[in-house]
């Protein structure tokens, strides 16, 4: 540990866990679901820019297409292309409430079991969601559930955090499971709460995570979220090394904004052997 560079003074750093937590369900409940409810207004105020790959994916869908935004957060992608119609779902009531107030369709559901009928959706989005699941089986099950609701020929876009990211966060390359702090500066709490329902944002609180200024516990609140950071190729392998390999093709894969992403296309139904 002596060889690691010292983090900026006072700024909370991701903490490596050495191994995935033993109790997947409880870990995700405490370090994902509960945290997003607690940070919902502030988190939402930092989520307004559409990532280019996601924007392009949405602009590329046929007019009138029906989509599922699984883990829709504050609904920031649901109105990007007004020729489409999206049904949003998330675990966090706080984020769903914001989505709903914006006039978007919001449903509380777990990414592992959505409750939609099969083969209905022209496309689905999973943006920064399955890296919060703490076992390979659960990450794969989430993809399987989204493929299930797609019509044959439908496309799924999955984004996950990259271990190799070189942006504002750096991760110990020998580990993949981390607790990542979310910091709410105290001076931003009021503005965040008032901005949350309108989708308006204020530069003053442009993402605690974007802030380079040191923060201390006396002036801020720190929450920890569980993440599994994906290595290059891992996302495709998750799919191709599972039963999903016969159900989908990998249409596109790449790296964007500290994330690995993949676009899967559901195969047309084949005759059973």
């Amino acid at each position: 540990m002596d060889s690691e560079p010292a983090p900026p003074l006072g700024k909370p750093q991701p903490v490596g866990l050495a191994a995935a937590p033993a109790d997947a369900g409880r870990t995700e409940a405490e370090f994902v679901h509960e945290v997003y409810d607690q940070i919902a207004p502030h988190f939402s105020s930092t989520r307004y820019k559409a990532w280019p790959v996601v924007d392009q994916f949405l602009q590329g869908q046929a007019s009138g297409s029906l989509g599922a935004d699984v883990g829709c957060g504050n609904g920031k992608y649901m109105g990007v292309n007004p020729r489409l119609f999206l049904l949003g779902s998330d675990r966090s009531w706080g984020l769903l409430d914001i989505t709903n107030r914006r006039g978007f369709e919001a449903m509380q559901a777990d990414t592992l079991t959505l409750g939609y009928r099969p083969n209905r959706f022209d496309f689905a989005l999973s943006i920064a969601v399955i890296h919060h699941l703490s076992t390979p089986e659960r990450r794969c099950a989430a993809v399987r559930e989204m493929v299930r609701i797609l019509r044959p020929g439908g496309q799924l876009l999955v984004f996950v955090w990259a271990l190799e990211q070189k942006g504002k966060r750096r991760f110990d390359q020998t580990q993949q499971d981390f607790m990542v702090p979310w910091v709410i500066p105290m001076n931003s709490v009021h503005n965040t709460l008032t901005a949350s329902t309108t989708g308006e944002t204020s530069n003053a609180q442009d993402a605690a995570e974007d802030s380079t200024a040191p923060v201390t516990s006396s002036t801020s609140q720190v929450f920890h979220r569980y993440y599994h950071l994906f290595r290059e190729g891992e996302l495709e392998q998750l799919v191709l090394n599972s039963d999903l390999a016969s159900q989908v093709t990998v249409t596109e894969q790449g790296y964007d904004r500290d994330n690995w992403y993949v676009i899967l296309t559901k195969r047309e139904a084949e005759k059973s052997p």
Binding site: N100, M107, Q108, A109, L114
Partner: peptide, 18 residues
């Protein structure tokens, strides 16, 4: 029974129902 509150349906299930 799934409840709908403030326009948002709750489709979450208990662990034993999944």
């Amino acid at each position: 029974v799934y409840t709908i509150k403030d326009g948002i349906p709750n489709m979450l299930l208990a662990e034993h129902e999944i």
